[in-house]
């Protein structure tokens, strides 16, 4: 009975492919999920094209994209060359929005924590174990630090947030780069792991003396206390949407990034960007599409959708606490989208 049932279902499944051409399926990163939901809802009301994006994780999204289960992927980390080959070699990275990763903490009696890259790396390496460590006090004159053990909270699930955060630490700390490295999941030298932003934020909330990292939007909506970080220009910057955008503008000024953009490569690294107002830990998220679309109808729908999110779509970005793409990048990305072969 079950076999018969399955056989009927599978045959209807095979027959129905054509009828659903106006539906686009996408899967991947969870970080941009809220804004993609917003875009898809507005876009489907406007055009009747149903776009379904699910946050199953960047790695999962990349695998579904390469095996052709979804029409587009979503990722917080750019694809490696091996991954691009596995996906057929013709992958276009389309940046959509940007976000910051913030250092959040819970310490009774301390409200305006300031950290520089050395101390931050020291804490996450497990070298600085107590809040009354002189290295912490030296950066925060006037604050009174208790004799309290530091509890490091990090993400236990692989995530783009971890990738951006560890990439920053590897950039600014040689010790971090050699002992730990950067990636979506790393071998943490200290602390406890929480699943997802909620897991990490939960650890921070219930443990006095805890410190961890979460997405900027998560910290803002949940009123977490955040540390100001010392940027490349030597100023302590509090994470906000403005300081995130400032970091993007700062990064765009570098000749290396300018060159990448003009060659149509949008896998930009925005960590530790120059500029007096730049917040140092910033990353972008990408939609992955094939440069050569096999199905003409789906391909056209996809290109129209991408054009819309890069133009009209950007106005909804900041109300959901993401930083929009700088307009200089947007026009270049639109050119690349127009180059998709249908």
């Amino acid at each position: 009975m079950i076999k018969k049932f399955l056989a009927v279902l599978i045959s209807t499944a095979l027959l129905s492919g054509a009828a659903f051409a106006a539906t686009l399926n996408g899967a991947g990163a969870t970080f941009p999920y809220p804004i993609y939901v917003k875009w898809n809802s507005i876009y489907s009301n406007k055009t009747g094209v149903q776009v379904n994006y699910q946050g199953i994780g960047s790695g999962g999204g990349i695998r579904q994209f390469s095996s052709g289960v979804v029409d587009f992927g979503g990722s917080d980390a750019p694809l490696t060359e091996a991954q691009i080959d596995a996906a057929g070699g013709d992958v276009l990275h389309i940046p959509t929005v940007m976000g910051a990763v913030v250092v959040s903490y819970n310490l009774q009696g301390v409200s305006g924590l300031k950290l520089d890259s050395d101390v931050l790396a020291g804490i996450f390496l497990g070298k600085i174990k107590n809040w009354n460590d002189p290295a912490v006090a030296a950066l925060n004159p006037g604050e009174n630090f208790p004799d309290k053990a530091i509890l490091v909270a990090h993400r236990s699930d692989g995530s783009g947030t971890t990738s951006i955060f560890t990439d920053y630490l590897a950039k600014v700390s040689l010790k971090w780069a050699s002992q730990v490295g950067a990636g979506t999941a790393v071998s943490w030298p200290a602390g406890v792991g929480g699943k997802g932003n909620a897991g990490v934020a939960g650890q921070i909330k219930v443990n006095d003396g805890a410190i961890g990292y979460v997405e900027l939007s998560y910290a803002m909506t949940n009123n977490l206390s955040v540390a100001a970080l010392k940027n490349k220009a030597g100023r302590y910057i509090v994470p906000t949407l403005d300081s995130t955008s400032a970091a993007a503008d700062g990064a765009m000024a570098s000749s290396k990034i300018k060159k990448m953009i003009s060659s149509g490569d949008f896998r930009l690294n925005l960590n530790n960007a120059p500029g007096v107002d730049s917040y140092p830990i910033v990353g972008m998220t990408w939609i992955l599409v094939h440069k050569n679309q096999k199905d003409a109808e789906k391909g056209r729908a996809l290109v129209d959708y991408l054009k819309w999110i890069l133009s009209d779509g950007q106005q909804y970005v900041s109300e959901l606490l993401y930083a929009p793409l700088p307009s200089s990048v947007r026009s270049k990305v639109l050119n690349a989208v127009n180059g998709i072969k249908i």
């Binding site: 279902l9 599978i10 209807t12 499944a13 129905s16 659903f20 399926n25 969870t30 999920y33 809220p34 379904n52 699910q54 946050g55 997802g196 932003n197 909620a198 997405e215 939007s217 998560y218 803002m220 909506t221 949940n222 959901l320 606490l321």
Partner: peptide, 24 residues
Amino acid sequence: RVDQPMASMTVTIYNYAISPFAEW
């Protein structure tokens, strides 16, 4: 349609629970 993606309460709950927003 059983041959298409289908919504479920748990996946929806999970998506909402891990998002940053109080409404969700």
